[in-house]
């Protein structure tokens, strides 16, 4: 099936099998490998991207579902060589260790702060329920989310 998907502002057109997952479209067709595949069963959140502004697990979404939509991956957050405030906060607060979950974490926090610009630590933890980190134990990730909220003026 022929689909057209805008990824980080750039339009991609491809003839894909209906069974192709969005995450494979992003990684293999668009060549954007910042989005990771972790559990591949919609538990871990390392494949989270923004689809028309809301987070989705791209391992549990077909590429054909994204036809006509606008996707933001981790590669699309920085503007003009300047990191997004959430990326900056993860860097400053050491909100990562191995980095595998980081793209999903950052996109989830980005949506969280759009919905709730001034979250409590507990609300951050609830918001990150679908993102698993196996290195840091979440403390610095929560600190990063709260710092990003402050930087964004929440």
């Amino acid at each position: 099936m022929n689909i057209q998907v805008k990824v980080n502002g750039k339009s991609y057109q491809a003839d894909v099998e209906p069974r192709m997952l969005l995450v494979h479209f992003l990684r293999d067709v668009a060549g954007l490998t910042g989005t990771k595949i972790g559990c591949d069963t919609s538990q871990c959140g390392s494949c989270v991207v923004l689809m028309d502004g809301v987070t989705v697990k791209s391992c549990t979404c077909l590429a054909v579902h994204a036809n006509g939509s606008s996707i933001t991956t981790i590669e699309g957050l920085a503007q003009d060589g300047k990191l997004h405030a959430v990326q900056e906060a993860f860097w400053n607060k050491h909100g990562l260790q191995c980095g595998y979950c980081t793209a999903g974490m950052i996109l989830t926090v980005t949506e969280l702060l759009q919905r709730n610009p001034k979250p409590t630590a507990e609300q951050v933890r609830q918001g990150l329920k679908g993102n698993i980190c196996r290195c840091t134990g979440y403390q610095n990730i929560v600190r990063a989310a709260l710092a990003a909220a402050e930087a964004l003026g929440g």
């Binding site: 919609s42 987070t55 969280l112 329920k129 679908g130």
Partner: peptide
């Protein structure tokens, strides 16, 4: 239900 991403879709 589930997590934010599951609730979104």
């Amino acid at each position: 239900i589930g997590d934010p991403q599951v609730r979104n879709r």
